[in-house]
Design a binder for these strands. Sequence first.
DNA 1: AAAGTTGGCAACCGCGAGTCA
DNA 2: GTGACTCGCGGTTGCCAACTT
Length: 270
Amino acid sequence: MNSNSKSSMNMYECESELRRGPWTLEEDNLLIQYVSSHGEGRWNSLAKFAGLKRTGKSCRLRWLNYLKPDIKRGNLTPHEQLLILELHSKWGNRWSKIAQHLPGRTDNEIKNYWRTRVQKQARQLKVDSNSKKFLEAIRTFWMPRLMEKMEQNSPPMSPPSSSSAVPSSPAISQLAPPDSLCPNPVNNSYSSNILLEQISGPSVNLTAVKNQPEIPVEESYYNVGFPSCYDDMQGQEILLPDCHVADIDWFGEDLCSTFWNTDELWQFRK
DNA sequence: AAAGTTGGCAACCGCGAGTCA
DNA sequence: GTGACTCGCGGTTGCCAACTT
């Protein structure tokens, strides 16, 4: 027991019995039973009356992140990943807000995803994960790749209509119209101002991007769109590793399949 | 096979906002 | 107005399994 908890023992005599660390099955059951009969909220008293030797905070966290019935377990789908990238570019580290658009996913899970996967990419590119450059990279390379994965994963009978493009999650249907992600009408590219300005629009149109995977590589984002992105980035220092592509071990195998490939990366570095 | 390293994730912590007496 | 309390959020930590050497 640390000195902090010791210091508060006078006020809360029973605090010495407070448990910490991983939850046991018994505790989980107690919490589930109590919440299912009394509902959520009033976490401190809930902890007390449910007979849990945990703080209210701890109970709330356990419930929201793990025990709640509609929690979705398992890997994030490409669609969910895409949504996270998109919404993060719009709202930043507002994890709970982002989580609201991914039913069954918790803010903690999304935060962990961002820290372990996305920030890793940024580190490997030696750019800041919140930087415009990285945002460009995500949009130019990563998103189209996720689109491809979504395309591959979608059932063959699924029609290409935008409304049913991503049937796996209701979230996408909430993210409808505008063109925060649409190609720039002038040059048909994803100009960088879209990223930081249009993105602050009311919502996100993923289908606009989604419907393009059939475009030949020469005409796809990073060839049509990238030049403008690149122009925009010129004059800025792009601190990418001073090494040949062949030497790069930026991507594990998994990342190769989910993130950009070597050719794309090479273009980005160029 | 063992030791060391890395990655993923659950849980904790501190802080600020909201509520209420 | 204010202090106590609760809640929710974002950042951080620590554990453990998987992977590498």
